[in-house]
């Protein structure tokens, strides 16, 4: 999962201090893996260097943790591009997809669009595997079937999430 894009997405709703960003990240996406402060500040300095965020204000007497960051136009475009690009279908994608969906809802983008794009990308991979299976021997068939079942599991999660988008929208807005 891209921590940089996630932090950028969180900044879209308004400027925040590094500490607030960490807290928002942990609350929405951290679950059993909270961010370290070091990760937040190294990520923010990279984003700053790349012009995706800017310093909105510095509190007096502050060290680096007192900086308040705001997303730039280039930052918004970067989040937009990341959300719109389907992930390469591979097992255990859920955390990245989940993050994209929640961020889309938080930033009032169309989360269903992201899920549709991802379904399409998965099906593209599944078509290639299905074709290989049709033309291959038994060993090919078994190898392709294994990959197909994993992709199918992702898609079942995706359909279930699509069906629960309204509830998720309410939950993230709290």
């Amino acid at each position: 999962m891209s921590i940089g894009h996630t932090l950028l997405g969180l900044l879209e709703s308004g400027p925040r201090h590094g500490y607030d960003l960490k807290r928002a990240f942990d609350e929405k996406f951290g679950h059993d893996r909270p961010l370290h402060y070091g990760q937040v500040y190294s990520t923010m300095s990279r984003l700053l260097k790349n012009g995706l965020v800017e310093v909105d204000g510095i509190e007096a007497g502050g060290g680096p943790e007192r900086k308040r960051y705001a997303i730039t136009e280039a930052g918004i475009t970067d989040v937009e591009r990341w959300l719109a690009t389907p992930e390469k279908p591979e097992p255990y994608l859920q955390s990245t997809l989940y993050t994209k969906v929640v961020l889309a809802l938080l930033t009032h983008r169309d989360a269903a669009d992201i899920l549709d794009g991802q379904r399409s990308e998965h099906l593209r991979s599944m078509r290639i595997l299905t074709d290989r299976k049709r033309k291959g021997d038994l060993a090919d068939q078994l190898i392709c079937d294994h990959a197909l079942f994993h992709l199918e599991a992702d898609l079942r999660w995706l359909e279930l999430t699509a069906a629960r988008l309204d509830k998720l929208r309410e939950a993230v807005a709290r």
Partner: peptide
Amino acid sequence: ARVAAYSDREIV
């Protein structure tokens, strides 16, 4: 999805 993978393209 495994059935749809036999298609050339999909509409949703």
